[in-house]
Amino acid sequence: MVAQLTENQTNLYDTDYNLWVLETVKKLENRDVDSLDWDNLIEEVLDLSKRDKKKIESLLIKLIEHLLILQYWQSERDRNKGHWEREILSFQQQILRELEDSPSLNNYLNTKFPDCYQKGRKLASKHSQLSLNTFPEKPIAPLEQILDENWLP
């Protein structure tokens, strides 16, 4: 009986994810822990953390890209400065909101900062069509400064 219930839950997870989520929520609300699809539930909860990490990394990469093009793409600066500054502020605010909701992501972001900087640097080069060497290999500022809404290069 228990094996059949577990198989049905797994099948539901594979065949109708949305229904699986709704059924899982009902079981959680009813404290029906015996009939939960634990394996898939654990996988989904862990995936929430992965999604948050990917999201915050992506935002940081885009922030760095825009900070670099603002500072180094002189031929387009006058025409695009306002747009780039708006994007920078938007990325900063989104990152700060994520960190406010999940302060433990701060440590994660600090460890990923060097890699995110290099990815942002490559994007800035592609975006601007400027040589990658135009942009410094080392970060233009510490992470804390890059996240400061009152700072621009």
Rank of each mutant, 00 (worst) to 15 (best):
Q9P: 00
E29D: 14
L28H: 02
L68I: 02
V2Q: 13
D16A: 05
S128L: 03
V33L: 15
W84Y: 09
H127L: 06
Q4V: 01
D16G: 03
Q145T: 07
K53P: 00
V21D: 07
L123T: 01
E44G: 05
L63T: 00
F135C: 07
E87A: 15
L41H: 02
E137I: 05
N18S: 13
A3V: 00
L67S: 13
K27S: 10
D32E: 11
R121E: 12
Q74V: 14
T10I: 14
Q93S: 12
A141C: 08
N133R: 11
E98Q: 13
L109R: 05
N11Q: 09
L67F: 11
K27G: 04
D115Q: 13
Y13L: 13
K27T: 01
G82R: 15
H83F: 14
T6P: 00
L48P: 01
D39W: 01
K138I: 14
D32L: 00
P139L: 09
Y108G: 08
G82M: 08
K119H: 10
I42D: 04
I95D: 04
S102K: 14
R121H: 08
G82I: 03
N11R: 14
T24F: 08
N110H: 13
N40T: 07
L132C: 04
S49V: 07
N106D: 13
P142K: 07
I95S: 04
Q71P: 04
V2K: 12
K81T: 09
L89G: 08
L147D: 04
P142V: 01
K112V: 10
L123F: 05
L67W: 05
Y108Q: 05
K138S: 15
I95M: 06
S58L: 09
I146M: 15
K112G: 01
D34T: 08
L22G: 01
E43P: 01
K122E: 15
L48N: 12
D32G: 02
T111I: 10
L36V: 00
S125G: 04
R79D: 05
E85H: 06
E144L: 02
N106F: 09
I69C: 02
L89E: 09
A3H: 10
L28W: 03
N40L: 09
Q93T: 11
C116L: 10
T111L: 11
N18P: 00
